[in-house]
Structures are given as structure tokens and as C-alpha cells.
Amino acid sequence: MKQNMKKIFVSLLLLLLTLPLLAGTRVQAETAAADDSAHVIDKALLFSVSAHVELERRMEELENKYATKVIILTTNKLEDEALSGRQYSGIQAFAEDYYDYVVCGGVETTGIILAIDMGSRKMWVSTTGDEVGRFQSDIDYLLDRVVSRLSDGENDAAALKFVQLVEQKHKWGFYPPTVGKILLSIGIGLLVALIVVAGLKSQLKTVRQATSAHNYTVPGSFHLRRINELFLYSSVTQTAKPQPQERGVGGGGFGGSGSSGFSHGGGGRTF
């Protein structure tokens, strides 16, 4: 009996000692959420420890260097989330309110938040303050690169890519052009060059066969003696008037205002 008690005690001790190791690669969200200075609030436990540490370090650096608060927030089920008693059904409103109230404590701040809801498999990037203008034209570029990694289940890579793109935007001010933009630019260049060369070549061609004798008309000699109109038939066509339709919300970026009244930019995707 004593032996059994000892085994149970040792087993419990070992279990207690190894429990953090079994959780191992995940970090308790509550710990992070409780920490006001945390940049990664990983309630859905998506990120590895190493990625979490790396993300925190780089987002801290961004905050110190560029005075922008960068946040990554994940949740398993949006419906379970509540802020000051308010329930959320949309990821955008949740992201904006979480940033305004939880991260910034109701004070308008410059920053950007990536919110990921694993329940609805939706993500939203919300910008505020100076970041609204900074990311306005490039939000689709950022969303496309993050969502493609989330769709592939590469959560660490998605978060690191998000931070890398925020760093890049602050460092360079722009993103490298996409293949589509490069091809479009080449197409525009070739088309304009073709028009310019054709225009310059047309300057070299001045010989035209004469097809009229207008220069040799005796002024005032034209006499219209008779003009007749014969009605043949008529036809009527009818087309239905377009009915006003409700505008749908697509996956592209658009801005809004959270319940705080602060201006936000951003956009979302489903993965």
C-alpha cells in the first residue's frame, strides 16, 4: 500500500513536472492576455514558442522604432468572445474594439492588428491612426500573402509574414511590385511605344491619293432642288429597367469605425 502510494505520488509529481513540456509548443493565451505589453494574444494556440518569441521581439522593436502598436490576436470561436459584455458575430468589429479598448485602453493610437478567428476561418487586418493611410493602397497585398499561408495551415509563417510586411512598409514605404503589376507596366510601355512610333512614322507619310474636289467647288453653286422622305416601317424594343440592388461586401479592404468612434482601415479574407 505504501509502495502504491509512493508510486502514485511520484507519478503525480512527474505529471506536474512534465505538464508544461506536454503543452510544450503552445503558450497559454491567458498569460499573454493578462500581460498589457503583449503583442501576441494567441487564444487559439496557433503559434509555436519560437515563433511567439520571435514575433514578440520584432513587434516590440517596431513599437520602439516606429511608434506603432502591432498586435496579433487569435481566437477559437468568436461567438465566445465578449468585450464589456458585448458579443461579436463579425471579426472586423471584434478586431477594432479589441484594439481600441483592450490594447489601447480607449485612447486613439497608431497601430495595426491581425485578428484570426479559427471558428469562422476568417481573418481581419485593422489599421488605425497613421497606419490607415500607410496601408490603404497595399492592404490587399498584405492580406493575400498572409491568407495564403493560413490556408495552408502555416500559422507561424502567416504571423511572421504579417510582421515582416509591416516592417517592410515602415522601412521602405512600399512593397515590391507584383508580377501582375510588372506585366501590366510592360504592356502599357509596349502599347505606348507602339503608338508613339506609329505617330512618328505617320509624320513621314504625306502622299495621299486625292478623293475629293472640294477645293475646286464654285462657291455658292450647290443647289438642293428636292428632298423627299418616304416612311418605311418602325420597330419598338423594350428593355427592363435595372432594379436597385443591395451592395454586397467582398473580400477586399474597406474602412470603418469601431464602437469607440476611432477611424479604422483594413480588410479581411476567409481562409
Binding site: A213, Y216, T217, V218, S221, F222, H223, L224, R225, R226, I227, N228, E229, L230, F231, L232, Y233, S234, S235, V236, T237, Q238, T239, A240, K241
Partner: peptide
């Protein structure tokens, strides 16, 4: 509900004359 377009077809004839010098 609808937009209507009526197309009326005609045959128009005209007669006239004019002078030309030193073509």
C-alpha cells in the same frame, strides 16, 4: 419597368447640282 426605343426607318432621296472649276 421598361425603357422603350422606337426606330423608324425611312428612304430619303435628294436631287441637286453644283459647279466645279479647274479640277
Amino acid at each position: 419597368r421598361y425603357n422603350y426605343t422606337e426606330t423608324s426607318h425611312y428612304y430619303v432621296t435628294c436631287e441637286g447640282d453644283m459647279d466645279f472649276k479647274k479640277v
